[in-house]
Amino acid sequence: MLEGSTHQLVMIILHDPAYLNDLLAALLEAGITNATVVESQGMGRLLSRDMPIFASFRHMFAGSKSYAYTVFAPVEDPSVTEHVVALATDVLREAPPSDRGLVLALPVARFVDLSEVPGGR
């Protein structure tokens, strides 16, 4: 358990679901095992892409149109952040530029890993 630490929160916004597995493998390679993945939608895509032209049956279902994923990964060591950036760049190099998404890292004011809190069963 650490407080007021050097932790960073790395957020990766991925616009092409096809690259999710590769990306997670890359995170694993960087030593990150506790990332959280959230299905998300970009604002531009919500406005423009969610306009089916020929077929829309699947659009009836929530969650069936996850065009993007957002990955949250807490990182203890800033050098790992650099590593993650390099790996993500590498994975997504082949994707078309508009689908590559973005990586950002935020300083974390407070980081508590509840699994390490003593007590309970």
């Binding site: 969610d50 306009m51 089916p52 032209i53 020929f54 077929a55 829309s56 049956f57 659009h59 009836m60």
Partner: peptide, 28 residues
């Protein structure tokens, strides 16, 4: 054409059930 229906159901004032039915009908 689903595109038109989606544009319509995004407008304010169309009730939720109406929107759902419109989208469903246009899908099938």
């Amino acid at each position: 054409a689903p595109a038109g229906v989606f544009a319509l159901t995004r407008q304010r004032g169309v009730s939720a059930r109406d929107s759902e039915l419109l989208r469903f009908f246009s899908a099938v």
